[in-house]
């Protein structure tokens, strides 16, 4: 397969989040946005100008921000609590556990600039632990959309879902992958490419990279299945078990630590149901060096060609 002559247009998924939230807020007066001085980085400027009263900015105080979200939900509002993912999850994890997950508060947590989106700002600003921290919490769907279309669909879904969830968004540009009008289904993987020799699974900013890896593999005579697994919890066990049984090997790739994230979640399903060789690509349990998000993904072995290499090495272990 030849590479496209013109590289695809890349989109910042925050824009899809913001425009969808504004549209939903126009239709539903209960929707409020809660943030921690992150109006700009959460792209809430438009929301603020349209609904100034409904933007609850608590200042730089994330524990209070999440608690306030729970209280707003108790008082009949529909809060989207938006902040940079490392601070939303890490700083206020106990609030997410007790006030949101355990209390089952109808709060939508929106982690912006997740993964290593703040590349050069360093590991304090990287959010490569958030899948691990959130996916152990009951009542809390964990979702990382792969493009602007899935982001808009997931935000629209969240507004109608009666319960909390964690939406993990990035600011790193990604191409369109899913068809316009795609509807988000909780816990359902999207089959992006059929294949029989191996399965590549990713979400968020990695999905387009594994698709490219599958194209490279095809050129090398390897048939790779590609699954976009936006929902890390509840996970699509059926699609994973089918992938294990039908292709016999699975590579996962994520903008997250390899400990406790998407790869771990897939491995849990595989080990319990259909053990096959696996390779988990991600940040290998280290603090990242200085560099942009794209540089760091390449650095940690997630350039499409490196993913293809890892897949071929894994196939040899089948």
């Amino acid at each position: 397969m030849n590479a496209p002559i013109n590289p695809p247009k890349l989109h910042d998924c925050r824009d899809a989040f913001a425009t969808t939230l504004e549209r939903l807020a126009t239709e539903n007066e209960k929707i409020v946005a809660v943030c921690n001085d992150s109006v700009g980085s959460s792209k809430l400027g438009g929301f603020k100008s349209k609904f100034p009263e409904r933007l609850v900015n608590v200042g730089i105080a994330e524990q209070n921000m999440v608690g306030v979200g729970a209280g707003l939900a108790n008082g009949g509002r529909l809060p989207f609590v938006c902040a940079a993912a490392p601070f939303l999850t890490g700083r206020s994890l106990e609030q997410i556990k007790a006030d949101i997950s355990y209390s089952n508060a109808n709060v939508k947590l929106v982690g912006i600039s997740s993964g290593m989106a703040y590349g050069e700002l360093g590991p304090t600003h990287h959010s490569i632990e958030d899948f691990a921290w959130t996916r152990v919490l009951p009542n809390l769907p964990v979702i990382a959309p792969c493009d602007r279309i899935e982001t808009a669909a997931a935000v629209a879904w969240a507004a109608t879902y009666d319960g909390p969830c964690f939406l993990r968004l990035s600011r790193v540009g990604v191409p369109d992958l899913l068809p316009e009008g795609h509807k988000f289904e909780l816990g359902k993987a999207n089959l992006l490419r059929q294949g029989s020799d191996i399965t590549l699974i990713a979400n968020g900013t990695l999905t387009h990279r594994i698709l490219k890896a599958a194209e490279i593999l095809a050129e090398r005579g390897v048939s790779a299945r590609v699954l976009n697994l936006a929902t890390v919890r509840p996970i699509d066990e059926e699609a994973i078990i089918a992938a294990a049984r039908e292709t016999g090997a699975i590579v996962t790739a994520e903008e997250h630590s390899i400990f406790g994230g998407l790869g771990s979640a897939v491995a849990e399903v595989v080990v319990d149901n259909a053990p096959v060789p696996m390779k988990r690509l991600g940040v290998p349990g280290v603090y990242a060096p200085t560099g942009s998000a794209e540089f760091l993904l390449d650095e940690f072995g997630m350039a499409p060609s490196a993913i293809a290499d890892a897949a071929q090495a894994l196939i040899k272990r089948k």
């Binding site: 609850v56 524990q63 209070n64 999440v66 608690g67 306030v68 979200g69 729970a70 209280g71 707003l72 939900a73 108790n74 008082g75 009949g76 509002r77 809060p79 609030q95 006030d99």
Partner: peptide
């Protein structure tokens, strides 16, 4: 108290 602030703000 943070949750209560959210409740009062909701009202």
């Amino acid at each position: 108290l943070p949750v209560a602030v959210g409740m009062a703000k909701a009202a």
